[in-house]
Design a protein around this nucleic acid. Structure first.
Lengths: 210, 210
DNA sequence: GAAGATACGGACCAGCGGTCCGCTTTTCAA
DNA sequence: TTGAAAAGCGGACCGCTGGTCCGTATCTTC
């Protein structure tokens, strides 16, 4: 039980920091030049407070990221089709990847900051393991598909934040185009038969903040 | 003409630095804790020399990487099949990806260092553009394949250094298994018809240094 | 309202990439 | 051979970052 309740100034500050960091990352071009001191200043808080609340830089990023991701995570875990369970595996896999892509698209800066500054490999992050596990399980139900473990990694790699940023930011690929291409790619991977064309279905709610 | 020749102590030092950096990156676990000062010390050289020769950290990494990559690059550009031109596109694409995978496998630490510390996105690196352009051109010749641009990105993403490191280092996937899985994945993507099984063919010379 | 627990915040620290400039080595023309 | 200018050397030094520390302010509890 414990969960010893925090002091109210503590929670106020915690939220102030999250909001400030959110805004800063959304604004600034390269995430690595949003400094901890910047965040603290923008939140009207001392550095000590910031580090006390989140441990270190990676902790702050993680907290932000997880907060944003949670709705999608829930939708994928127990929501309605096509994201939730009870959907044919091909379709669900496509929907999952599409959701991830949209998320990264809408939260590019943050995802980028987390993947590159997030204390080492993105593959050690808890949320990656979660996505991978889920996708792997779904792929296991696709008839005729082997190597579900590797395949899940490879498909997820197509949604890496820096790739998304490159496509969207540098090559100026519109969101819907990227979605369609990823869906098409996914279909190719999952289909044993001739690849059927597949355009992006109507998608996850956009929470565009950047 | 010009190409004003360097002083001999300069070239000696340059090579000493490359060798030292090579050794250090090969040895140490995480590339970010091989510091420039370490490299300089290991090469028996001052930091000034190091920075004069390579500009900055990214420059050093790039120089090392390019040097290692050149043979493969040449083999891909004008070598014998299955890597070189004059190979059926499916087969060549598979061979290219296999070669990249092997390269990253054998030079994990270095590739990792470059991709994560290499001044921003790996997608802005010259060598990435080169690989992508080549693969894209090959994919363009695969009948029934659309979105060659995106597809090339997605396939290359499956060979990212940190993914390779994760597979090899964390999940303990043997080299040959990874090769077979990537080949299988590639085949699935490229084949419009039923996926034919495909094991890794006899591969690029291994230059295992790590 | 007093005492104890909790959190604040900014001065402070260590370590990094990168610069600078007085000094040494090499080069090359005479 | 020589001597002076060009080229390069190297390590003290700088700015900036993530992260720590602890005297002080605020909240909670009785």
């Amino acid at each position: 039980m414990p969960e010893r309740k925090s002091r109210k100034d503590a929670v106020r500050n915690r939220e102030a920091v999250l909001a400030a960091a959110d805004a800063l990352f959304a604004r600034c071009g390269r995430p690595e030049d949003v400094t901890m001191a910047d965040v603290a200043a923008a939140a009207g808080v001392g550095k000590g407070t910031l580090f006390r609340a989140f441990g270190d830089r990676a902790g702050l990023l993680r907290a932000l990221y997880e907060a944003r991701l949670e709705p999608i995570r829930e939708a994928a875990e127990a929501g309605p089709p096509p994201l939730g369970p009870g959907t044919p595996p091909q379709q669900r896999a496509t929907a999952l990847l599409d959701a991830i892509l949209c998320f990264k698209f809408d939260n590019r800066r943050l995802a980028l900051a987390l993947e590159e500054s997030g204390s080492g490999s993105p593959y050690q992050a808890e949320h990656y393991a979660w996505w991978h596990g889920l996708l792997r399980a779904v792929l296991d139900q696709v008839p005729g598909l082997t190597d579900s473990d590797f395949t899940a990694h490879a498909l997820l790699a197509a949604t890496r934040a820096d790739l998304v940023e490159h496509l969207a930011g540098h090559e100026r690929v519109p969101r819907e185009t990227a979605r369609a291409q990823l869906a098409n790619f996914t279909t190719r991977v999952l289909a044993s038969g001739p690849a059927r064309g597949s355009s992006a279905e109507d998608g996850p709610a956009t929470t565009d903040r950047n």
